Simulated scan of single mutants.
Amino acid sequence: MTLTIWILFSDRLFCSRLAALVGRAVPGSKVFLFSSVPDCLQKAGGRMPADLIFADPFADPAFWPFLQDLQSQGRTDLIILTKDGRPACLATALQKGAWDFLLLPVRGKRLFQSLDRYLAIRTGLSQSRLLTQASVDRCLALRAPIPAPSKAVDPGEEKLLSCLASLGPQGADAVTLSRLLDCSPGTARTKAEALVQKKMAGRRPGLSGKKGRPRTFYYLVNASWPV
C-alpha cells in the first residue's frame, strides 16, 4: 500500500532520521519533510494530500487549523510525537482524532508497532468487500495498544495478553485460548484467571460452539477500544 506521508518538525536532523525509520516501515511510500506549517503550505502546493502526518501540534499553534483544512479535503491521519506529556495534551489529541500519541524520545520498535497497526487498518478499510463482525473486531484489536506487562507477568501471561488484544473486546473462552497458546484448556483457564486476579483481564458468561454451550469468556481490560 503506497501512502503519502508528511513529516513536520523544525529539527532537520530529527526529520531525516524519522524519515529513514518510516521508509523502512512503509516501503514504497512517498515521504516529504517540512520544517513548519508555512513551509508545508509553500512547498506542498499541487502535491497529493497527505494520508499520514507526523508532527508535534503543541509546538505550533497554527497546526490544528492546518490539519482541519486538510481533513476537509479528504482523510488525513495524524501521529503525534512530542515531549509534552501533560494530560491536557493527550486529551486534546484524543479530541482531535489523532491516531497515536508518542512521547519523545520514542523507541523505533514502538513506532513500528504504531505504523503496523495503522497500515493493517488502512488496508482493511480500503477493500471494497463488506466488513464482517470478525473483521470489525480485528480492526478494533489492532487499534488498541497492548498494555505493557508488569514485572509480575510471566512470559506465558504476556503471550496471553497479546492474544486477548488480537481478539478484540469480545474476548474468547478457554478452549479458544488454548488453541492460540498451544496448551490445554485448563492451563489457558489458569493463566486467564491469574490475569483476572491482577485486574488485567475480565470475564463474562457467554455461549460457545454450535450447540451454544455456556462458557466463561475472558477479555482484555483497560484497553482503549474506539467506538
Rank of each mutant, 00 (worst) to 15 (best):
A88I: 14
L130E: 14
Q71R: 14
T2G: 11
L104R: 14
R179S: 10
A20I: 04
S36D: 12
L94V: 12
T4P: 07
S208M: 09
S224W: 14
D39G: 12
K198I: 07
L160C: 04
E193Y: 05
S150M: 12
C163G: 00
K83A: 15
P145C: 02
L119M: 10
A120V: 03
W99Y: 12
V221D: 01
V106P: 01
L21P: 02
S166F: 12
G186Y: 01
D173Q: 04
K151R: 14
L21H: 10
A134R: 13
V175P: 00
M200I: 05
A188T: 01
C89S: 13
T82L: 05
G28P: 02
K211Y: 13
Q197L: 14
D173V: 03
Q133A: 12
C40P: 00
R215I: 03
P226M: 00
A59V: 04
I5Y: 05
Q127C: 13
S114A: 15
C89K: 10
M48Y: 05
Q197D: 13
S208A: 11
Y218I: 05
L181H: 02
R86P: 00
L90E: 09
Y118W: 15
I121Q: 08
T2P: 11
I80C: 06
G85H: 07
G97N: 05
E157C: 06
P145V: 00
R12Q: 09
V136S: 04
P105C: 06
L119R: 09
M48R: 13
T190G: 06
Y219R: 02
L161R: 03
P214F: 03
R17K: 15
S184M: 08
P226Y: 00
Y219L: 06
Q71N: 13
T82I: 04
L207H: 09
A59S: 13
S166W: 08
L67D: 01
P105N: 06
F101Y: 11
R143F: 15
L67T: 00
R12K: 14
S16D: 10
S10Y: 12
Q133L: 12
A201D: 03
L8A: 09
Q197A: 15
L21I: 09
P105F: 05
G23M: 10
D39S: 13
G45F: 07
F54P: 01
R75W: 11
